[in-house]
Design a protein around this nucleic acid. Structure first.
Lengths: 252, 252
DNA sequence: CACTATCTGTGCGCTTACGCACACTGGACG
DNA sequence: CGTCCAGTGTGCGTAAGCGCACAGATAGTG
């Protein structure tokens, strides 16, 4: 189901680059398919590429020695996979796995690093994106501590929905359980409740969200906190207006 | 109990600066006391300063609307408080609170930003530190999900111990419970077990670690993962050798 | 020395989630 | 058309943690 039209601008970070930055980077972008379940990198792998998803979604998971895991963040067309490259560590102890099939633009790691170290708009952009990722991770930690599986499922659905153009996602309860780090049966129960409430509908790996407002209402505050913070850090620009993120009107 | 001698070099980040960087920054550093419980900033506060702890420890907490909270990372002489300044967001949704009294060197935010944007060694250093902070947060999220209060208490003690020069810390069970986001009684039980095992000893807010190896053994893997990753990202330099962190021998 | 506030210990009922076992169902495939 | 199996539903018993209530214990204070 390759979407008919592909364009780097479908990724918000790529869309936010200045004309000069585009000119330098776009020629090196390569469109690659992102099949469901593909592992972009394992814990400790040296990263060779970074990926800018367009219509795909990637989960960053931490996996424990006993195989248990938990998702610490979700990346879609709002971000990129591979921040460890420009943060200087080159690797991270996490696994990146495709959670929703689609496409992404891929870039050789060194080229991203070069652009980053020009210290221009892209550096500011990537740092801000990293901060929003940090917020997502931290809020996930709190959510894991204090909220029920029901609430976390809502949060997870909303995060995924925001990164898709449709309200249907292909995802079995088993996989969701892996992401959330809970039992499959727990997801079955939570999803059952949502279905009975008419909020979602699903069968055999196809989940359709019917009533998003209700979903937000059932969700814990964690989703809203993360959303608000990313909107603040990475204001979406109208595709027609000139690119935008500059350093803030320096206070102090 | 002001320690007799104070020196910016007691903070590992400050110690790792090049001579030129030191010359620019050290004159602006101001030694400030960090009393127990002091709030350096609240969620959403605009940061005015950054703090480089020497012998104090600061916790970053996320606080929920209902008052529940969870610690997402710990900062001591290995780091600084206020990364949002150079990441571009200027604020974060977290609270920074002094967990162990002591001192820190304070710097006006703008001066840190200026040095950061010189794109020299300090930028690389701060980015690497940020990555290690990300690792700590992510591992905390997983730990919250999968490990028992007993294990988390061990992890927390070890993280604190690493940032102190002594093996005794001043901290009530009530406060530890706040940090971990669990009940006070849960901490009482866990601490009781550790005391019966002869691993720690405590009374009325004074905790002494007697058997650190045992503590590490009782702990979940999360502590080790974070430790290993920070050691990798921020190799400690012998204070006598010339400063050190440069960009990695660029691969690819 | 008595008083008081703080810190710690303990018990109990309740909820949530876990681990396991197994039954059902719908779609793919030979 | 029958078989098979991934995906889902359900029902246990068990364990961990919560909320609450209250009892003891220790240090400071007047």
């Amino acid at each position: 189901m390759p979407g008919p039209i592909h364009d780097p601008q479908q990724n918000h970070l790529l869309a936010a680059l200045s004309p000069a930055e585009r000119e330098r980077l776009y020629p090196h972008l390569r469109l690659v398919p992102m099949p469901l379940g593909k592992v972009l990198y394992e814990s400790g792998d040296r990263l060779r590429h970074v990926y800018f998803p367009t219509n795909s979604i990637v989960s960053l998971l931490y996996v424990l020695a006993d195989g248990a895991s938990a998702e610490i963040s979700v990346v879609g067309n709002d971000g990129l996979i591979g921040i460890a490259l420009f943060m200087g560590g080159e690797t991270t102890p996490s696994r990146a796995i495709v959670q929703s099939a689609g496409y992404a633009y891929r870039l050789i790691g060194q080229q991203l690093k070069d652009e980053f170290h020009r210290s221009g708009g892209m550096q500011l952009l990537l740092l801000r994106y990293t901060q929003s990722l940090i917020t997502q991770m931290a809020q996930t930690a709190v959510c894991n501590r204090h909220h029920s599986v029901d609430q976390q499922l809502c949060r997870w659905l909303l995060l995924s929905l925001d990164r898709l153009s449709v309200s249907q996602l292909t995802m079995t309860q088993e996989l969701i359980a892996n992401m959330l780090g809970v039992r499959r049966e727990g997801v079955t129960e939570a999803a059952g409740k949502l279905q009975r409430l008419g909020v979602i509908e699903y069968s055999r790996g196809q989940i359709t969200v019917l009533d998003r407002p209700k979903l937000e209402q059932l969700c814990c505050e964690c989703y809203a906190v993360v959303k608000r913070e990313s909107d603040r850090l990475l204001p979406r620009t109208d595709a027609s207006t000139p690119p935008k993120i500059q350093s803030m009107p320096s206070a102090e």
